[in-house]
Design a binder for these strands. Structure first.
Ligand SMILES: [Mn+2]
Ligand SMILES: [Mn+2]
Ligand SMILES: [Mn+2]
Ligand SMILES: [Mn+2]
Lengths: 218, 218
DNA sequence: TATAAAAATTAGTATAACCTAATTTCGAAG
DNA sequence: CTTCGAAATTAGGTTATACTAATTTTTATA
């Protein structure tokens, strides 16, 4: 039994939303994430439930079943492997690959995915620093801390980004910030929660709270 | 304006059928090729016609417009480039790539296709010997002659296969026949139109008429 | 605790892409 | 030139996936 692209997109969205809401994902949040109206989501949840891919009690949040989780992780695995492929082999920028990977993640061929993985040398992370689930469905947990939570004076490394939009990624490039960049928190501004950082090149830069909250660090 | 995968499949089928029926492709032939019932095809032809992708006079055959031809050639280009990629880079056998390429041919991203083309070194032919349309939509015409039309004593080279099925391609492998193989027609058997050939390795092999009709030569 | 706002669901509709059954049109054979 | 079988189309139905409007349920607030 295979699943439609639409179903896969719902499962992936539910998986990702459940990372911050393990006790149940709301219809509204899925609706916003996928840009689909709530009644349509309600409908789909009924179908996914009938297929035993999610658990759903009416008017309550949803959680993925083991079966649903496996599908979601497979889709995420493919998305991140393809993104890595596009950057490593086809010389795309990290802000150009997401939309293409949104399509490639639905290609059905387990053997293709594994050849891709092998061709790339079994990469543990994608170009945005996100962990790539293994063939067995294992995924490293992501670092939880974001740059806005770091105390003054500490030095940290950027390990991944929360926002994958071109806009954000291009802005980071203009600041010379990428995955692996070390930054020192020079000052935290109380007024607007912005942060002044210093990068390797000794330059001081000011980052808004919004930007910092989208940068995972270790 | 983009087209659905379904529409692309129809356009590709019409293009390929029109190679042997330039004056118009029938509803029935499309129906058989795509394994879809004739009324469904009729329906779709109306929609493709409304989009100016085909010309269609009721109860007459269809032809592609320039616009439709362009879409078809783009899909074929992607199909053949991906097949080449899978064989060259991922070490798939030539009989394993068609079904995966049927999916990959629908990925929408002109820049991806051109990077793929570049990555492969702008190959003129796919693993089955079929010509790959260029970015500009140009396609080499295929050799017309098949092995069953060759006179006794002549020596020819296999340039492409008509049938892309695993069954057929695997049978060819078992005979050590591939694209580029030179064969000499030793004898033509009148009784069943089968042909006895001799390959580089001095071995004599008997090929049925059906097999010969699926082997293009030069 | 009563009520209002928000969230979720149900009801009813649309479109793409499929189907079967019925009808129309074409083209070949007599 | 009529007639009949094949091909094509129309009619009417289904499913997946969307939508808006109406209704129900939950939750938050007074
Ligand atoms: Mn992405
Ligand atoms: Mn990513
Ligand atoms: Mn093919
Ligand atoms: Mn091919």
């Amino acid at each position: 039994m295979s699943h439609s692209q639409t179903e896969e997109n719902y499962l992936k969205a539910i998986y990702q939303l459940s990372q911050s809401h393990p006790d149940g994902v709301t219809t509204k949040s899925i609706s916003q994430r996928l840009n689909i109206k709530a009644p349509t989501v309600s409908d789909m949840l009924k179908r996914l439930s009938a297929k035993k891919l999610i658990r759903h009690a009416r008017y309550k949040g949803v959680t993925l079943t083991q079966k649903g989780t496996k599908v979601a992780l497979t889709v995420i695995r493919k998305h991140r492997l393809w993104e890595t492929f596009l950057v490593e082999k086809f010389k795309f920028k990290w802000d150009e690959v997401h939309d293409i990977a949104e399509q490639l993640e639905h290609i059905q061929s387990p053997v293709l995915v594994n050849r891709l993985d092998e061709y790339l040398g079994f990469p543990p992370f994608d170009p945005h620093g996100d962990p790539i689930p293994t063939k067995e469905g294992l995924i490293n947990s992501r670092y939880e801390k974001t740059l806005d939570q770091i105390t003054e004076g500490s030095s940290v490394e950027i390990v991944s980004v929360r926002d994958h939009s071109s806009k954000f990624l291009q802005y980071l490039e203009s600041l010379s910030i990428q995955i692996g960049t070390r930054v020192k928190v020079v000052r935290r501004i109380d007024y607007d929660h912005s942060v002044v950082i210093e990068t390797d090149d000794q330059m001081e830069k000011s980052l808004s709270h919004r930007v910092c909250a989208n940068l995972f660090v270790k």
